[in-house]
Amino acid sequence: MAKYGYARVSTSDQDLSIQMDALRAAGCGIIRMEKQSGTSTEKRAELATLLDFLRPGDELFVTRVDRLARSVGDLQMIVSILREKQVSLKATEQPVDTSSAAGKAFLDMLGVFAEFETNLRKERQLEGIAKAKAKGVYQGRKATIDASRVFDLRKNGKGASAIAHELGIGRASVYRILNKTNSA
């Protein structure tokens, strides 16, 4: 039986040291860490590696459940994988231990709250954007495609696919630029 740790922060400027210290204190010999959003399990290579590597009887430690997943669906999927592998999940800062019924129930509740928190954050962000747009201060992301270059290539007889290929963009982006001018 081995103890493994998983540490995650959402952005590259955040620090993993507090999580790492807590996981080492819990006795984790190997700790996988990554700086990646927790709203999805996609692009989380370290988590995937760890889930593949775990063996029956192992224990997976996190500091908090939201380090593992931010949606109920992802959390349930991960817990299902762990259950199939006969691996228990424990959290150093929360009373989570999937080897007990109470720990399993608490885990499910924490998953619901993690997803709720993510949804609230998204709502606040959308409200802020709507207010900024109403004030005229939100313009959205700056254009990364030179529209004049698209039009020049079009005038030279190139089709959307050729333009997209030459500029290294998607065809849909070419059509969007061309249609924006046609509808204006």
Rank of each mutant, 00 (worst) to 15 (best):
M1Y: 06
A2Y: 13
Y6R: 02
A7W: 01
R8H: 05
S10N: 10
T11L: 14
Q14K: 12
D15W: 04
Q19H: 09
Q19I: 09
M20A: 04
A22G: 02
A26G: 04
I31Q: 01
M33P: 02
E34R: 10
Q36P: 02
T41G: 02
E42V: 13
E42P: 02
E46Y: 03
A48T: 10
A48K: 13
T49L: 10
P56I: 08
G57W: 07
D58Y: 07
E59A: 09
E59K: 05
L60F: 00
F61G: 00
V62E: 00
R67W: 03
G73A: 14
Q76V: 08
M77E: 10
I78W: 01
S80T: 13
S80Y: 11
R83Y: 10
R83T: 13
R83W: 05
K85Q: 12
L89N: 01
E93W: 07
Q94M: 09
P95M: 02
V96C: 01
S99T: 10
S100P: 08
A101N: 11
E115M: 04
E115T: 06
E117M: 04
L120S: 06
G128K: 08
A132F: 06
A134Y: 11
K135H: 13
G136R: 07
Y138D: 04
Q139E: 07
Q139R: 15
K142I: 10
A143W: 03
A143P: 06
F151D: 11
L153A: 11
R154E: 12
R154A: 15
N156H: 14
G157Y: 01
G159W: 11
G159Q: 14
E166P: 08
S173R: 13
N179L: 11
K180A: 15
T181V: 14
S183T: 13
A184L: 13
